[in-house]
Design a protein around this nucleic acid. Structure first.
Lengths: 250, 250
DNA sequence: CCCCGGGTGTCACCCAGGTGACAGCGGCGC
DNA sequence: GCGCCGCTGTCACCTGGGTGACACCCGGGG
């Protein structure tokens, strides 16, 4: 029923650097994992609401997306993107109540899962894990605050730039372009849902970014040619704003 | 140095029903409070960033507002409104890092406070408190998700209606109007910051609500005349949408 | 091979709502 | 009393971006 030892080793190695387990000693983690089971969901799978009440899932491989859907006005908004080391459903874990969101597998998803209650006990009993977990919660709250603030104060172009920037690694590929992680194969529709906009508008801004040589042209995957330029857009200092306003007498 | 016993009793009674302490036995709470100190901030006081790193504050009486400010583009956004029973800074408590927000006293603020570290220990050591605290975090996350989703999917009129609705009690005053709590004396500017808009636009929508007899006219404090109507706006079923679209042949 | 479905690229249109401006209003201190 | 200041109420103006529509492109399945 529990995880086979070799797989457990693989998972430990996967989670070691993840925010939830960063400072948890390997031994404790290995012991915890002993109580998990394993599952695989094919891409597109939608989490069943009642299984989210009973089990807490940790992602070993693959990505998941958590969408909120406005009941009226059937627009969607992507609350968060989960990758290896992330778990769901966090909110249910905290308060035990059903969480009205859609969690779905973007890729084939390799998961380990354990009963909610047991998870809660671990949090209570393992001090190192507790500390880590709380600090993970803190980070998540910061992220969410950032998203709200962005939505409330910045325009779509800026939000898009920030979205891309947030997922850009420092690594450079063979052609000297920065690679975008996690969201590089997203459709415009999916990007739009992450910044609270629509596919047409996202397309508009993406074209502008390509035109200005900030994004690499002519390819599906996002690649960044001018990181400096991108972060200027993200902070929308408006580039050279004011220059075209030189008073006539100078 | 610690709280005088009569005041402690007062605080216990104040916190008893609050989300953070709901299920914490009075005895445990009283013992905790023994380690707190007391402070009063006059209205308008801004929390000093470094004191927020060292101490965790609980509100006994009064309200506080937590604002995020977009570094460029100096617009503000009110992340949350805190009342009796709420504590700050939650995020710093969780991850120990400075939290770049402005916390300020809306009213004269009566607080009790304790060192962050001790607070963290209580969370770790008192199981009932831990459970409560985590579930409080869950609620807070739900609220934040709601705010983001609103911002991303609804128009300002709807967001304003929801804001008011969220703060409307079931109680009815002498004239049969529902009273709005916590935000009833806010300026349009302050309301605007809570829904990511501007004072002019908020005013626009407030006038519309008055015109439609949803809000009580001619007075500063918000009072609701037609709760039903308000929640219709909040869910923007668009009222009788469709009625004016009856196909010609019927 | 063609068809189909999902994604992309681009329009033209239009409106919610941001913006600046200005006039009134009430409370407070002098 | 008067002046000040912060707030309210209302304009007129302009624009970012939502919307529907349509053409096109590509990959996979029958």
């Amino acid at each position: 029923m529990s995880l086979p030892v070799p797989y457990r080793d693989y998972v430990v190695q996967k989670f070691e650097a993840s925010p939830v387990f960063r400072d948890v000693p390997d031994a404790a983690m290995r012991e915890m994992l002993g109580h998990f089971r394993q599952a695989t969901w094919s891409r597109g799978t939608l989490a069943a609401p009642d299984s989210l009440l009973k089990w807490f899932y940790l992602i070993v491989d693959g990505r998941a997306r958590v969408d909120a859907l406005d009941p009226q006005n059937q627009r969607r908004f992507t609350l968060s993107l989960l990758g290896p080391g992330d778990g769901f459903d966090l909110v249910t874990l905290l308060d035990g109540k059903a969480h009205d969101v859609e969690t779905l597998a973007i890729d084939e998803l390799h998961l380990v899962y354990a009963p909610m209650d047991r998870m809660r006990e671990w949090i209570r009993q393992h001090p190192e894990f507790n500390r880590n977990f709380l600090s993970y919660l803190g980070q998540r709250m910061r992220e969410m605050e950032g998203v709200s603030t962005d939505l409330a104060t910045s325009d779509t172009a800026t939000r898009l730039a920030r979205l891309i920037l947030r997922h850009t690694g420092k690594e450079i590929d063979a052609d000297g372009h920065h690679v975008v992680r996690l969201i590089n194969d997203f459709s415009h529709e999916a990007l739009a849902r992450m910044i609270g906009s629509t596919r047409q508008v996202v397309n508009r801004h993406l074209q502008a970014l390509r035109r200005d040589r900030i994004l690499k042209d002519r390819q599906k995957k996002l690649r960044i040619a001018d990181l400096e330029g991108l972060s200027r857009r993200a902070t929308h200092l408006l580039g050279d704003a004011g220059r075209h306003k030189i008073p006539p007498g100078s």
